[in-house]
Design a protein around this nucleic acid. Structure first.
Length: 839
DNA sequence: GCGGACTGCTTACCT
DNA sequence: ACAGGTAAGCAGTCCGCG
């Protein structure tokens, strides 16, 4: 029989049957059962020499929990009666863990083990339904499951919608009918997608099902335990946050409400309404229906435009992950485990999930931190002709060039070499060390530990075998090659066609996987966590960057700044930049090849952008007039890290800092011009009226109020709003989007006092706004580019403070003088008294 | 009791 | 529930001074 492609697979608690959900040739959903697959884990053979381990294994063998064993030298494969969820197996594993035994892959579920071992391909032709529910909003605030569901709508991939409305308001039988029909509808699809459905729609439906006792009534299409397995649910909002959350300000996305996202990406909005939902339901059923349907249509269109779900499906089928487990770590775990299985590499078990409360203060593992990228202390100032180039995929390339991986690491000398490195480095940070000194140290160590060049040395003084590619290097090479192929195909296909979209999704999926690979090596929660290996990558990245800086400096060019994989240089426009890059690349390649003798060289600088005028303000903070980007001419002011790109900055400051940067970078205004400009602006802020929207500070509430250890003003205001039922508590979690609190500072002199925007009564602290919100960011920029400009004269608060201190000192001195005077007088009196007595 | 110095928390950014 | 590096503003605390 041809291997069937499951849509989803699972095994129930304490059962050893694997259920595969699939569609037959007629497209009908079926479940295939697998009963003959035995679960197993690995234990290192050396462990068998320990009496306590031996005894434990014997004990569970006698109890028939361990069925059989098989040698997989140097490991022993132990087959059990069920997976890690079986109580008896759980006890066995707990016992072995308590002995700190070297056990491997014991955390896999039966289903995951089966999928990995058989390299089961996952169905990627999935039927998607976009849905949304409306609920009774007559009570204040939102509370999951408190009120009735009023309707549902679902939209298929072609834009066809279905809608059902609660027939009789307040009637629980009618609501039961409504929800049953929704479930029946869900089951027709493989995936149902929603907007924020993970935190709203799904829990709401589940809660209503429980309250109405729908599952205990027998005419539901499928039994309770099984109908949720008939389809998967994904939350498109979470995925949108993953994709665009990090650069929303850069691209200009206002927020992650469905309305904001749709307005931005597809230029469409939700159905506008001023009435409450319950009002619409009761008095305007047509509009109510349109409103509910429109949300699902928007989801469908959004997916068509952005390919959100397509990309997820691609990543899932590439790695062998089911959609409802769509997390980077899970995707990569499946991908790596499948490859490792073929190479007979067994990874350690994934660490136990630790609750926040369970983390011990002195946990050694928790304290380990891994060195990251190189951030050069920038040479501040205003420059002409600044060129930027960067290393293409620095970390993947480094892994390949230096053949980095747990399997290629020379463990025998790893500890000693680490100690020697730390001893040499001492208290210094690696970026403080002179490059030549670092290079010399590495050469000395290389000679000592690697005389016949069998290994390849990394910049943290670790050694990796060269004989065959590491698992990681092999995977990455495959990924990069595949991506190249898909990129080519994408280029050949016609823009907008299904093929084009398919190739695009493929190459993007691969890019995400390749770039995330390093991350899991430095993540304590994964089985791949390995400080020596992770730091081999980052430190060597730093080293390559600094080698390049050394080469460039020797060629006579000045590197102004560098962050991880990019370099900023001031190179006149009379020079041929491509030629220079070519030369640097050649020299770098020659040097790395000569010094480290890699099997394959995989580093490449590529030309990125040119700034006509450029202001270097601080680490990770700069702005410039960009005229060339990826070999295409452009004309824009690019700003990184400065207040204008931060969403906490007030609009007034954002507008004026932008204006200021435009004047300096595009219109080449000089220092004197800007001084005048600042003086005028200060007068305006201190005397004129400013709109409240321009003064509002917006800060995100990122977690439940109780989790805050200190309570700044925005948290205090949020707390008040929550108490008044005007705002929802934020849930903990990575892919949730907290609520923004917008407020205005009424008194910024001490502990900040303020009001939320809605309650603003016209009181604002002018001096605080000028000094902290508006001028401070400007001053930092101006001081960086014209350091001798006496820019502090506009910082009123600091000046006032200094004057206060001066005045105080003066008073103190006067007092002191006065006291001394009195003392003198007293003594004089005493003297005269004594003199009198004497007389 | 006041205010400066310092520390730690929080947010939001960069690669 | 993929990483580390960084700036900035503020709350909270400690400590010396008077």
């Amino acid at each position: 029989m041809q291997k069937l492609k499951p849509i989803f697979a699972w095994n129930n608690y304490n059962e050893s049957t694997i259920n595969l959900l699939y569609r037959d040739s007629e497209g009908k959903k079926k479940i295939h059962h697998i009963n003959d697959f035995a679960w197993y884990f690995y234990i290192h053979e050396n462990e068998l020499n320990r009496p306590e381990v031996k005894q434990t294994l014997k004990f569970y063998e006698d109890k028939n929990v361990i069925i059989s064993t098989e040698s997989c030298s140097p490991f022993l494969k132990i087959y059990c009666i069920g997976d890690k969820y079986f109580n008896q197996v759980k006890y066995l594993l707990e016992k072995l863990k308590s002995y700190k035994s070297d056990i491997r892959e014991s955390d896999l579920s039966l289903t995951k083990r089966y999928m990995v071992d058989n390299s089961i391909e996952i169905e990627d032709n999935l039927k998607i339904g976009f849905f949304d529910i409306e609920t009774d909003d007559s009570n204040p605030g939102i509370s999951i499951g408190r009120d009735q569901i009023l309707s549902w709508a679902i939209c298929d991939n072609t834009g066809k919608t279905k809608f059902q409305r609660l027939e009789t308001y307040g009637d629980s039988n009618a609501e039961t009918e409504l929800i049953k029909n929704l479930i029946k509808e869900f089951i027709k699809y493989d995936v149902v997608a929603s907007w924020n459905g993970k935190l709203f729609d799904m829990p709401y439906i589940v809660s209503r099902i429980e309250q109405l006792e729908i599952t205990t009534k027998s005419d539901v299409p499928l039994h309770k335990s099984i109908f949720w397995k008939q389809f998967m649910h994904i939350d498109m909002m979470q995925q949108a946050i993953r994709m665009y959350g990090s650069n929303m300000t850069t691209i200009g996305l206002a927020g992650f409400s469905l309305n904001d996202v749709c307005k931005f990406f597809i230029g469409q909005t939700k159905v506008a309404h001023t009435e409450s939902i319950i009002d619409l339901y009761k008095n305007n059923p047509e509009k109510f229906e349109e409103y509910n349907k429109q949300d699902t249509i928007l989801l469908q269109k959004l997916n068509e435009k952005l390919g959100i779900v397509d990309l997820m499906i691609k990543e899932c089928s590439w790695t062998g992950t089911f959609l409802n487990q769509f997390y980077v770590s899970e995707l990569l775990d499946n991908y790596i485990l499948r490859a490792a299985k073929k190479e007979n590499i067994y990874f350690k078990s994934r660490p136990e999930w630790k609750n926040k409360e369970d983390v011990v203060e002195d946990d050694e593992e928790e304290k380990i931190s891994i060195r990251g990228g190189f951030v050069m202390t920038p040479k501040l100032g205003l420059y002409d002709n600044v060129r930027v180039w960067d290393f293409r995929s620095l970390y993947p390339s480094t892994i390949i060039t230096f053949n980095i991986g747990e399997d290629t690491l020379v463990k025998e000398i790893s500890e000693q070499c680490k100690n020697e490195f730390n001893e040499w480095l001492g208290e210094r940070k690696i970026e403080e060390v002179d490059f030549k000194e670092w290079d010399d140290f590495l050469k000395k160590e290389n000679k000592k530990h690697n005389p016949d060049k069998k290994y390849i040395q990394t910049a943290n003084n670790q050694f990796f075998r060269k004989k065959s590619p590491s698992l990681l290097a092999g995977l990455l090479k495959k990924l990069l090659d595949e991506r190249k192929e898909y990129k080519k195909l994408q280029k050949e296909a016609k823009d907008g066609t299904p093929e084009y979209k398919n190739f695009k999704a493929s190459q993007e999926a691969i890019k995400i996987l390749a770039n995330s690979l390093y991350g899991i090596l430095a993540d304590k929660k994964t089985r791949y966590f390995n400080p020596a290996v992770a730091e081999a990558i980052t430190t060597t990245g730093q080293y390559i960057n600094r080698t390049s800086i050394a080469i460039v400096s020797k060629m006579g060019y000045e590197v102004l700044y560098s962050d991880t994989d990019s370099q900023f240089l001031s190179i006149g426009n009379d020079k041929d930049i491509s030629k220079i890059i070519e030369e640097v690349n050649e020299k770098l390649e020659k040097y790395i090849k000569k010094t480290y003798k890699p099997i394959e060289y995989f580093q490449l600088l590529q030309y990125e952008k040119t700034f006509r005028k450029f202001a270097m303000v601080d680490k990770k903070r700069y702005a410039g007039h960009l005229i060339m980007l990826d070999r295409k001419e452009t004309d824009q002011v690019m700003i990184k890290g400065l207040e204008t790109v931060r969403k906490t900055t007030i609009e007034f400051a954002r507008r004026h800092i932008n204006e200021m940067l435009n004047l300096i970078l595009k219109e080449d205004k000089d220092e004197n011009y800007m001084k005048k400009w600042i003086t005028d602006l200060k007068q305006f802020v201190l005397n004129e009226e400013i709109l409240p929207e321009d003064l509002a500070i917006s800060i995100k509430i990122s977690k439940p109020i109780a989790d805050y250890k200190s309570k700044p003003i925005h948290v205090l205001l949020a707390e008040k709003l929550i108490k008044q039922n005007k705002m929802l508590e934020t849930k903990a979690g990575r892919n949730t989007w907290g609520t923004l609190i917008s407020y205005i500072i009424t008194d910024g002199s001490g502990k900040k006092e303020g009001v939320v925007l809605d309650e603003y009564k016209g009181v604002w602290d002018r001096k605080y706004y000028w000094c902290t919100q508006i001028y401070a960011p400007m001053q930092r920029i101006l001081e960086a580019i014209w350091p001798d400009g006496n820019w502090c004269e506009h910082d009123i608060l600091t000046i006032e403070k200094e004057e206060r201190i001066k005045a105080k000192k003066k008073i103190a001195e006067e007092k002191k003088l006065l006291l001394e005077e009195k003392k003198k007088q007293r003594e004089a009196k005493k003297l005269t008294k004594r003199q009198l007595v004497l007389i």
